[in-house]
Design a protein around this nucleic acid. Sequence first.
DNA 1: TTGCGCTATGTCTAGACAGCATGTC
DNA 2: CTAGACATAGCGCAA
Length: 828
Amino acid sequence: MQPSSLSGLPAGVGEALEAEGVAELYPPQEAAVEAGVVDGESLVAAVPTASGKTLIAELAMLASIERGGKALYIVPLRALASEKKAEFERWSEFGVTVGVSTGNYESDGEWLGSRDIIVATSEKVDSLIRNGAPWIDDLTCVVSDEVHLVNDSGRGPTLEVTLAKLRKVNTGLQTVALSATVGNADVIAEWLDAELVESDWRPIDLRTGVHFGNAINFDDGSQREVPVDRGEEQTARLVADALDTEEEGQGGSSLVFVNSRRNAESAARKLTEVTGSRLTTDERDRLRELAEELRSVSDTDTSEDLADAVEQGSAFHHAGLASEHRSLIEDAFRDRLIKVISATPTLAAGVNTPARRVVVRDWRRYDGDFGGMKPLDVLEVHQMCGRAGRPGLDPYGEAVLLANDADGMEELFDRYVWADAEPVRSKLAAEPALRTHVLATVASGFAATREGLLSFLDNTLYATQTDDEGRLTAVTDAVLDYLAVNDFIERERDEVDGTERLSATGIGHTVSRLYLDPMSAAEMIDGLRDACADDATNTTDAMPAESGEYERVAPDDADGEPGFGTYSPVGDADDDVGDADDDTDDAAGEEDGKRTDITPLGCYHLVSRTPDMYELYLKSGDRETYTEICYERETEFLGDVPSEYEDVRFEDWLASLKTARLLEDWADEVDEDRITERYGVGPGDIRGKVDTAEWLLRAAETLASDVEGIDGDAVLAVRRARKRVEYGVREPLLNLAGVRNVGRKRARRLYEAGVETRADLREADKAVVLGALRGREKTAERILEHAGREDPSMDTVDADASASAAATAGSSGGDGGGDGQSSLGDFG
DNA sequence: TTGCGCTATGTCTAGACAGCATGTC
DNA sequence: CTAGACATAGCGCAA
C-alpha cells in the first residue's frame, strides 16, 4: 500500500511521505489502515518498538485534523515529549501546529488551545482535565504511546483513569493505543472498544541470542563465533566483536544493560580498554571536547568518572546523572562518537538510542520486597533487546544475553528468547492510586454519588479485567472514608431518595488541582497546623535553642498506648555532637526581627515524609547518625515525632530526615560534590529531590493559606524555605539568585565581592562584577542586563583582581564554563 | 615489629510524573 | 526458594 493512495489525509501528506522514502507502508501500518485508523476508528497496535508505530499514530492524527479535529499524543516520559514534538513538526508545511505540555515545559497556556497536536505526559493530561483546560472538549483523537504502562503500579492507574475520562468527556473520541507486544493486547482493545493489530514484524531484523562459551547462539539457529580468552570478560569481548565487524565501513556500537548504577560505572570503565584502542585521532579530539563539556556540567565524582570514560569512547548512563549529562551522552552515541554505553534500565524505555548490538548482561535485579534478586520481566528484556538495529545503518540488530553454562543458556532461551511478554494487569484497585483518583473524579465533576463513582470506574481497564467486583468497591469505600475524615470530600444523604451525594470541599478541590496525593496534603496540613497551635500556646519557649543538646526521655507511661515518646531539652551539653564544619545555624533567620519556630529543616522534613517524595535509602550507620540529629533538632519538626520504639514508622521518619538534611545542605550552599558524597547520590538525584521539594513546598503554601488554623507567618516561613531550596542558597543570597543566569555559585561569588543585591548589580563597579565572575565578559553582560542595568557592556572593563580573589575563596574548585548549574537558564 | 596476602564477612542494590510564576523603591 | 561485586576487617605468616 502506497502512502499516496490513502484518502482522508491533508493534501500532499502521502506524497511527502513517499519523498521521505516511505514507498510502501509497513505491514502493521497497512493493517492499521485496513482497520480504519485513517477513518477515525479506534485501534490498539501491539507491535515491536521501531516498527513504525509512530506513523500509525500520525496517520490517525493527521486524518482527524483534516476532518477539522484536534489530537492529543500522550507520552510516558517528559524526555519523549520534545522528541515527538520535533518529529510531528515536519507536518507544519501542511499547516499542522504542535504544542507541548509537561510539568517541565509548556508551550504557553491559551496557545495550546490553538494547536492541532498536543504532546503531553499522562499526568499532565490528568492535571489539565482537573484544572478544566478548555480545549479538552475539542479533542477528536487521542494517542496513548506505550499503553502497557497501565501495568505499572505507580503510574499506570493515572493513564487508565485519564483515558477513561477523555473518552467520557468526548463520546466518539478516536483512541489509538500503541503498545509493545504484550500477552493480552486483546483485553486492552476490548477495554478501549478498539480494533486490534498485533504483529512481530520489524523493518530491521532482530536476532536474539545467548552467548556461552565461544559463540553466540541465535534464535534462528545460526551461530556467531565470539571466542572469549581466559581472563577476558564476556561483555568486553562482545562489544569488541561488534566494533570490529565492518558493515558498510561502520564499526557497530553496543548498548550494555546492567542491574545497578555501580555496575554501569564499572562496566564503562572496563570497556574503555576495548573502545580506547579503536579511536581515530579525530574521534579522540572530539571526545576530549565532549568530556570537557561533561565535566563542566557538575563538579562531582560522577561527572569526572563519566568524562574520563567518555574520553576513551565509552560511557555509562543512569538516573544519577544530571539531565545535561544524559542528553550529551545520548547525542554522542547517536552520532557514533561514543562506541558503547553501559546503562541501567533508564535507556531501555527512554529516548531513541539504537545500537548495532545490545548486550543484556544482568537479567536479575535486586528487589527488597521480593527478598533478593528478581528476574526481569520478559517485557523489560524485550524492550532492551528492541534497541538493537540502527535504521539505515545495520542490516540487522543483535541482542545477546549472557550465560555461563549450557543450563544457563537453556534457561535464558526459555525465559526470554522464546517467551511472550507477560499480560498487562491493571493496578487501579489499590488505596494510594484510588485516593488520588477518587478525589479528582469527584472534584472535577465526573461523579456525584458513590454509585456514579463506581459506574465511572467501570470504564477502566481494571473493570474489564477483574472478575472480583467486590474488591474495587471495597477499596473505593475505604478511600471515601479516608477522604471524608480528612475533610476533602463531604457526604450528604439525600432525605428524599436516600442516595448519598458526594462533593469535594474547598480544600479537596485545591488538593485535586495541585495534583497532590491527598495523603501528602493531609500530612502537610497537619504538620503546619500543629506548628501553629504550638506557637499560639507556647510563645515563650517556642524558640529553638541554637546549640542546645537534647536528651531523650523515655516515654513515662509504659502502658499500651501507642503514643509518642516525649522529649525535653536539657541545658548542658556534655559531648560534641555533629560536624564542626556543618553548622546549620542560620544567622539570616533573625534579620527580619520576627522569629518563627518553623525552620527550613522542619519544612523540608514535612515534604520529605510525604508519599509524593520517594525515599532515600538508609545505609548502615545512617540509623545512628539520623537518630542523633532527630534528638538534636527535635523542636524543629512539624507534627509529632514517632517513638524510637515504633520501628517501621521511626525508620521511615529517619529516611525522610535524611532527605530533609540533603535539602537543607543544598539550601546551605554545601558543595554539590560534598552532598553526593555524604548522601551517596548522584547530581541527577539532587536535582530530582530539589525539584520535588520545590513543587511540594509551593503546594504547601497554597494549602496553608486556604485552610483554617495556619497563620501568615507559617506561610512566609514555608515560602522562604522553598526559595532557598529552589536557588540552593542561604538567606542573604536569595535576592541575587533571583537574577537570571545567576545560580548559587555566581551569587555567592558576587556577594563575597560586595555585590549583595539585584540593585547593587545595577550600581556596582563593573570591574568588581567582572572580577567576581572570573572575567567572563559575556556572562557578566548578560547578568547585568537581566538585573536591569542600563549599560551592561563590558568593553574596556578590566576585572578587579581583589574581587576575583574574594570570589574564588568563597567556593572550592570548579572551573569550566558551565558553573551555576542551579540556575534554570543556564546553557553550555 | 612490620608488611603482605589471603579469606571471611559485611555492604549495597532501577526508575521518575506533578505546579507555578518570579521582582521593585 | 533465590545474587554477586566490591570493600574492609581480621588473620596467619614470613622477614
